Computed example of a mutant assay.
Amino acid sequence: MKFVIITGMSGAGKSQAVKCMEDLGFYCVDNLPPALISKFVELCLQSHGDIQKVALVIDIRGGMFFDDLFASLDELKELQYHYEILFLDANDAILIKRFKETRRNHPLAFNESIVEGINKEREILKKLKMMATNIIDTTRMTPGQLKEELRNIYLEGNKTDNLIIYITSFGFKHGIPLDSDLVFDVRFLPNPYYVEELRDFTGKDLKVREYVMNSSVSVAFSNKLFELTDFLIPHYIKEGKNQLVISIGCTGGKHRSVTIAYVLYHKLKEKGYRAILTHRDDTLGERK
């Protein structure tokens, strides 16, 4: 039986994850008291194979019952029940934004600010995060991207190193993305903006990508960029990094940066990395 415990920060997307897991055929239970976990597993095992995949959401909403979680996990090990822990996280700014948008109070912020509630929760969940089998940072994720990530892990069975790589194109005239880890300037590449029949298209269109990549400089740069990131990624994984944001910029963020981001994304995917492609300043929407 596949048994997954879903936990993580409030506002990081656990409710959305449960919906996705149900779509993947998991029998899901939200906010089960941790002391009942082993009994629940026993019941599932007695279903004579009717229940093959189970996901439980366990988080700080359980209040004082949450303290029983580690004892319950030890009990599962003693009973030789295999389990996985999925930990959902997001940066503080996004968590605060989500709470304000939904007008919800943080479960630990009784008479305090959302920030103080988040800080308390991070401290409480620190040990649990270290025990996690899979960590997904939803800071930059759409619900669709989260579903795809869960599908890759729990349906396709792809192994995960817990590092998600975000490749983002942008325009320097609109500013560098604040959460960038690596920033590359591609304003030296051939610019389709000065070709009248290409100006109104973007790097998502094949004819624009062909124009940009029909240059030995573009090809050489894209190869060297992949070699560099391929070299760096294992070191970021060793460091324990959960997400890596690679930002690629040109002047307006529509042609050259989109093209190189597209090329790098597909090279990383072919290598087996968990990569997500976004285009911050392309107003024409996604057409990967």
Rank of each mutant, 00 (worst) to 15 (best):
K2Q: 14
K2W: 14
I5K: 00
I5V: 07
T7N: 00
G8S: 09
S10T: 10
G13E: 03
K14P: 02
A17R: 04
K19V: 10
E22Y: 09
E22Q: 15
F26W: 02
Y27I: 03
Y27Q: 02
Y27F: 09
Y27H: 08
D30G: 10
L36F: 12
S38M: 02
S38W: 04
K39C: 03
E42I: 01
C44H: 13
G49L: 09
V54L: 00
L56F: 00
V57K: 03
R61Q: 09
R61G: 08
G63N: 06
G63L: 08
M64W: 06
D68T: 02
F70T: 11
L76E: 10
K77G: 03
Q80P: 05
Y81Q: 11
H82D: 15
L86T: 05
L88Q: 07
I94D: 10
I96H: 05
R98Q: 06
R103H: 15
P107T: 01
L108C: 14
L108S: 06
F110D: 05
F110L: 11
F110K: 10
F110A: 12
I118C: 08
K120W: 12
E123H: 05
K127Y: 11
K129C: 01
K129Q: 10
A132T: 00
T138Y: 08
R140P: 05
R140V: 06
P143W: 09
G144D: 14
L146N: 09
E148R: 15
E149I: 11
R151A: 09
R151M: 11
Y154W: 15
Y154N: 06
Y154Q: 10
G157W: 14
N158C: 13
K159R: 14
T160E: 11
L163E: 01
L163I: 02
G171F: 04
G171D: 02
G171S: 09
K173S: 10
H174A: 02
I176H: 02
D179R: 13
V183M: 01
D185H: 11
R187V: 14
L189F: 06
P190N: 03
E197S: 14
E197Y: 05
E197F: 05
L198K: 03
T202P: 10
T202R: 12
T202W: 01
K207D: 15
E210R: 04
S216C: 03
S218N: 07
S222T: 12
N223C: 12
K224T: 07
D230P: 14
I233G: 04
H235M: 14
K241W: 06
K241D: 07
N242Q: 07
Q243T: 00
L244Q: 04
L244Y: 06
I246H: 09
G253Q: 07
R256D: 01
A261Q: 13
Y265L: 12
H266Y: 11
K267E: 13
L268F: 11
K271S: 13
G272M: 13
I276Q: 13
I276W: 07
G285E: 08
K288E: 13
